[in-house]
Amino acid sequence: MSNESSTQKQGNSPAIEVAGLAKRYGDFEAVRGLDFEVMPGEVVGFLGPNGAGKTTTMRMLTGFIPATDGEARIAGHDIFSDATNARRAIGYLPETPPLYPEMTPASYVDFVARLKDVPRRSRKEAVERALGRCGLLDVRGREIRQLSKGYRQRVGLAQAIVHEPKVLVLDEPTVGLDPIQIREIRSLIQGLAATGGQTVLLSTHILAEVDAICQRVILLDRGRKVLDQPLTELTGGGTSLEEVFTRVMTRDEAIEPGAEGEAA
């Protein structure tokens, strides 16, 4: 609808802009003043140990929870003042795929297409395309509750891409899957970025995953950004991602012993 204006300037303006984003739960600071940008078409890995604030940040970006402080824009739309348009521009796969077990993949994806304002004329086509891309055409009429975990994850992904969002936010898309399923989901995400030109922000704590699909890494630790670099620069000198990761994390712990006291 009103996405026209943002399409024009999308050439060089970031798909995700985050400035000073913060989330406090009482005294606990889950995310503290986060700043980063993601350019259109980039695949960025959100990395960090459990409890680093990855999920919280993603939930703020998608509008599930309000931020305590700071600003964020999705495809040029402010997530507070222009929430509806920002939400239309996002496809979101939460940590647990938000599925209705009694529905079939086809009816479920159609339901989501309606929620996301896919125009009536192109809805059927959009649903078919999303099911096709996620390899769900064979199971389209089965109940979601009967599907394996890998297939459910695909349904979750189909739900996230049905309205062809500019930005895809995927929270641990491969967690709990077997190695073959992981490979399938990864190649699916790579395919989306390559053919759909979508911007992908994906969180994980599996380093190999970042190696496999991301172009850039943002490392979070205790709500702070501790690293933001293209993957080629990071591993260019022959060092593995794991080495970089361990080095940054230990340095971080050594630098601010007061952080624990501050948070408590």
């Binding site: 509008g63 979101y92 939460p94």
Partner: peptide
């Protein structure tokens, strides 16, 4: 319980 509230509350509705 299903986590589908996360879908509804992040949709443009």
């Amino acid at each position: 319980a299903n986590g589908t509230d996360e879908l509804l509350l992040t949709s443009p509705i």
